[in-house]
């Protein structure tokens, strides 16, 4: 059931996408480094590792992390 809800939500999001967005010459701001979804991958990996070690949840932004005996 949860899977179905997730798939339907994704489809709805995609259907709405075609009317959104910008032209290629309107990307000045979006191309800026600080507007990338992950600005500093090393820092993001550090945080994922810390929270994987200390909490029962992991991932979300990407793969679940882990690969360590800290949990």
């Amino acid at each position: 059931m949860r899977n179905k809800i997730a798939v339907i939500s994704l489809m709805l999001v995609c259907a709405g996408c075609s009317s959104m967005g910008v032209q290629p010459w309107e990307r000045e701001v979006l191309a800026r480094e600080e507007m990338q979804l992950t600005v500093d991958p090393v820092e993001a990996a550090t945080d994922d590792h810390i929270y994987f070690s200390k909490e029962a949840s992991s991932g979300g932004r990407g793969f679940g992390g882990g690969g360590c005996g800290c949990n």
Binding site: A6, S9, L10, V13, C14, C17, M20, G21, V22, E26, R27, E28, V29, L30, M35, L37, S58, G59, G60, R61, G62, F63, G64, G66
Partner: peptide, 26 residues
Amino acid sequence: DVLDVVFGVTQVITRNLVVQANYSFS
């Protein structure tokens, strides 16, 4: 063993706004 699967959509909304949504399974 750990198997992870991630599906994502990233969408530019305006010149100043970008959003992302992910579903992941582990």
